[in-house]
Design a protein around this nucleic acid. Sequence first.
DNA 1: TTGTAGGCGTTATCAA
DNA 2: TTGATAACGCCTACAA
Lengths: 336, 336
Amino acid sequence: MITIKEIAKQLNMSTTTVSNVIHGKTSEVSDDTKKIVQDFLEKVDYVPNISARNLAQNESKIIGLALKARADKYENLIMDPFVSELIGGVEETIRNAGYFMMLYISSDTNEIMRHVSTWNVDGLILFGMLNDDGIRVSEKYKKPIVCIDTYSIEGLKHFTNVGLDDEQGTYDMVNYLISQGHKKIAFLSDNTNGVDLARLNGYKKALKDAKIKYSPSNFLKIRPHTKDLPESLEEICERSKEFTAIMCVSDLYAVTLMAAFADRGISVPDDISVAGFDDNMLGQLHRPALTTVHQNVKQKGTVAADTLLKQLKKIKTPNQIVLPTNLVIRDTVKKI
Amino acid sequence: MITIKEIAKQLNMSTTTVSNVIHGKTSEVSDDTKKIVQDFLEKVDYVPNISARNLAQNESKIIGLALKARADKYENLIMDPFVSELIGGVEETIRNAGYFMMLYISSDTNEIMRHVSTWNVDGLILFGMLNDDGIRVSEKYKKPIVCIDTYSIEGLKHFTNVGLDDEQGTYDMVNYLISQGHKKIAFLSDNTNGVDLARLNGYKKALKDAKIKYSPSNFLKIRPHTKDLPESLEEICERSKEFTAIMCVSDLYAVTLMAAFADRGISVPDDISVAGFDDNMLGQLHRPALTTVHQNVKQKGTVAADTLLKQLKKIKTPNQIVLPTNLVIRDTVKKI
DNA sequence: TTGTAGGCGTTATCAA
DNA sequence: TTGATAACGCCTACAA
């Protein structure tokens, strides 16, 4: 790999001049030398050494994407279609802006921080942080942070959040279920934190507005870890007889549930209605096609990255961005 | 961020000593000073500046994962469940070895090369390269390269390939279809290069061994790009009447096809049998569950990364690694 | 056992 | 318009 120093030597000029041409500081250099240098750069296929540049300018052109894995949930976080779509959106935006993305997956916040510090990452996108995780990070890391899907009022003082109107999403869907005549509606999720809690609240609100009583027994808990899944699905299918519709916190769970139903001869939507949340490939390819709450996941990623990029350019951004949802009525909910 | 120089100053010693302690060159330093330094490092939470280290040692501790996107195929490569599972395997292995992964997606080989050079990436994992793409890269890039799923005899002189016995996989499956009484078997794919060609060859071989004639009209071409997909699905469904079974080149296509069948009232496996290849979430969650050729995609990623890591340690590795496949018989193939 | 000094490739300051 | 030189943080050969 050829260096600026070497180029300067071969061209009988100083590194400064070469560097200036490279950076288009055209005012500083005569047209003649400019041309000479540019031709030479082209010829030798010069590529700068980023490490050296980082050291000299104290900026890395790296944006870190840190995914906090929940140890109990997936063996492999990235396999969640939601996560991979998100990464796709972030990666594309960062790349087009001339930055680089460093992906880091860990369940240990400290590990993430160490990683980010060694690389002197210019900005950080955080996903999967719970409650004050984000705040803890922002206290150590003094550069721009954008969180995705983090519910933390306190956090918004420290970082920007890109999220969804999760509550409104389930609220709308449960209202739709009610409009189709459903009264005994369960809510299925694996936890009641953050996003899941917001969706649960939307569900509860819709029930309340329709004067349907909510009971804790309406909450169906799925245990997604591979070894627990079959057993928890068995329980849920058993309990599903008490309901006419199930509002699932994600498409993945909705499709998983419908497969379990099919295995037991329970027919969707004839025996029971199912609604999802996300609108991803899984629900789109399912037959009957899943009625679900649409969100644009890729957009979530691009908006998060764009926002961070703006902050790096010192452009003011709102500290909370709420993306819309909308209902996608397909074939898994029956009018009763 | 505190530097070695600063630490040395505060401790009244030289940077060499501090550096030696950091690198565990314990023989070079007295136990007393070692302890002092270690305690101090702990206290100030020292994190090395990777750029500086890279510059000094001329190694980056980065492994590049370059995905060559085919412009015509996906808007977003990473959304392919195969790709995301692969990334998951690579990322995990690299991280556990103390390296860093830089993900780079592009359809332009030169762009990938430039990226890899600026970062002085220690090793490269390549996916999606066709024919001599990999060779072109290896001629410019003089460090270890591991390709995934690249079919290129010539290439094996230049790099290690981690692949699958794709031909055997479809061969086994088509034999199974034949054993179930099928004779009119189509093959569905979007191209006939690399992996797809190998799978097609396995299919042809099985037909030949069973003395069933292959005709080019047995090849059903799907056009996956969003705007073409519905039309190509319509054509395929129409043509499917000529066959009793369809061997699909991937689970994604098998599930996509079955959704199209369902929309037209064509029942799987009663009206037509379908087999896939990959064994991913899509086929597992489908009902009837997809009969498919299993491959361990995550393992593909981990093996590729492990192999590269070995090469970085100058450990010899075979220049071709072929992972096995096996049949997963589920419910989409009927005996006729 | 510890310290000094030079170099990695780039940028930036300031002088010529 | 161009060039010398120091600085970024770390590593290492060699000296003390």
